[in-house]
């Protein structure tokens, strides 16, 4: 059980500006701006849930993950994960969690992967029996047996990521934080990683919190998404509900040589460039063919395309809707 209540975090950032005069001034006095990274963030995640945590860069995703994993202390608010407050009982808390940072390795670079695993066993004080069992299971499901004796630096990105995930599960954590686990992977590796995470969740009931920019990850893995923007939780719901809500909207892109487009109920201009314009069409108000008729009535249209909502576009339309 993960419970966040009213989490707020503000950072102080030094302001730097160009020019000789400003630089000299900054030598004596430096100005700071306060950046509110998280504003009153609250949510609850039940045991065994898989949650996708999405939002644009700088929205506050990694701050939230850092708070939940005990790396960062919030200014106010409470966070209780399986009975622990991460920043208060750090050591007790981190025994129960696994963290994968997609961009940073936790393996020892120059030695075979198996050595890293054994060192992790000692760091987490995993009993020998449990370690053996976990190691065997992970090696089998992630197909690691071939690469266990290879130094980490010689692994491909996909192989390394599989090892990273195994490394963070050796101690049987109840909660797994995945920060962009598929970044930079090829299609085959991505599918393997997703498949493994799903299986882990199903068979061990591991709670998974996933941040990613890859919407296919979200589609493949999570039923629930949390959308964060400018430090606030904007949306908390199932992917399906979102899709239904946004399935009503189509995007029509028009290329034209001359003419104008009349205003009409249910048609919202999105972008306009010379010879090219795009519109969001609310299918509750008018049908796509009606919209096309309206748009082509007064203009010489050379090309036209209608797009539905993929997960990718869903997110784009969400970002547009919330202006983030």
């Amino acid at each position: 059980m993960i419970e966040l209540q009213g989490i707020t975090k503000t950072f102080r950032v030094a302001r730097r500006s160009g020019g000789m005069k400003e630089a000299v001034k900054a030598l004596f006095r430096r100005e700071y701006t306060l950046v509110q990274a998280l504003k009153d963030v609250s949510f609850t995640i039940g045991d065994g849930e898989m949650v996708g945590y999405i939002g644009p860069n700088g929205a506050g995703k990694s701050s939230t993950i850092k708070i939940m994993s005990g790396i960062l202390t919030p200014d106010s608010g409470t966070c209780v994960i399986n009975g622990c407050t991460p920043w208060k009982d750090r050591k007790r808390h981190v025994k129960n969690i696994g963290v994968v940072f997609g961009q940073r390795s936790q393996l020892w670079w120059d030695v075979p992967v198996i050595d890293s695993f054994e060192l992790l066993r000692d760091i987490y004080r995993v009993p020998e029996g449990t370690y053996k069992r976990n190691c065997e299971e992970l090696c089998e499901t992630l197909e690691l047996s071939e690469i266990l004796r290879t130094p980490a630096r010689q692994l491909s990105l996909g192989q390394r990521m599989r090892c990273e995930i195994a490394a963070s599960l050796l101690h049987d954590p109840e909660v797994l934080f995945l920060d962009e686990p598929t970044i930079g992977l090829d299609a085959v590796s991505k599918i393997a990683v997703r498949e493994f995470i799903r299986r882990r969740n199903r068979e061990h009931g591991t709670t998974v919190i996933l941040t990613t920019h890859d919407m296919q990850d979200i589609e493949a893995l999570t039923e629930r998404i949390l959308l964060i923007g400018k430090g606030e939780i904007l949306l908390d719901g199932s992917l399906e509900a979102l899709r239904q809500r946004h399935a009503k909207v189509r995007k029509i892109t028009v290329e034209y040589s001359s003419g104008t487009f009349p205003e009409a109920a249910g048609i919202t201009p999105l972008e306009a460039a010379p010879g090219r314009a795009s519109f969001a069409v609310d299918t509750d108000v008018l049908s796509v063919s009606q919209a096309i008729a309206v748009l082509t009535g007064n203009a010489e249209v050379t090309d036209l395309s209608v797009q539905g909502a993929s997960a990718e576009e869903l997110v784009v339309s969400l970002y547009e809707e919330f202006h983030i």
């Binding site: 994993s69 790396i71 050591k91 981190v94 963290v99 940072f101 940073r104 936790q106």
Partner: peptide, 13 residues
């Protein structure tokens, strides 16, 4: 390089 974050998520001093 962020290694200290990693240290903080491990159960040792």
């Amino acid at each position: 390089n962020g290694q200290f974050d990693r240290i903080l998520v491990r159960p040792r001093s």
